[in-house]
């Protein structure tokens, strides 16, 4: 994960960051405190409430379907499980 740190001559002008969304290189998945969300696909109605409430943009949606979680970024807050209207998401202990 650690990027080679650049010297001052190699940095873009004005301290800007010229790579949009580069934070995706920074994985926050290891912030989870021993629990993670899992999806029960059978129950899920693809209402996408979990998606709109996720503070970490860590819900995978493709073709209108809830596909699961970006565990590289999910911080395990539990909002998705808490807000899922039909209990399709469960917070489970993280495996070692």
């Amino acid at each position: 994960m650690a990027e080679k740190k650049r010297g001052w001559k190699e940095l873009p002008i004005g301290a800007i960051i010229d790579e949009a969304g580069s934070s995706e290189k920074f994985k926050t998945g290891d912030w989870r405190e021993g629990r993670k969300p899992v999806l029960n696909k059978d129950k899920c109605t693809n209402c996408l409430l979990c998606w709109i409430f996720c503070p970490d943009s860590a819900i995978i949606v493709s073709n209108n379907e809830m596909k699961g979680f970006k565990y590289d970024y999910c911080k395990g807050c539990g909002i998705c499980a808490n807000q899922c209207p039909i209990g399709a998401i469960e917070m489970v202990p993280e495996e070692e």
């Binding site: 926050t28 998606w51 503070p55 807050c77």
Partner: peptide, 30 residues
């Protein structure tokens, strides 16, 4: 329409360092 919106992708993406469960991050993202 969430389904429509989900197609355009996020403009506040993952890997930021807000606390788990951050309300303001949700406010910005929405």
């Amino acid at each position: 329409n969430l389904k429509e919106l989900s197609k355009q992708g996020d403009f506040l993406t993952s890997g930021h360092r807000a606390c788990a469960g951050c309300g303001p991050a949700i406010a910005l993202r929405q």
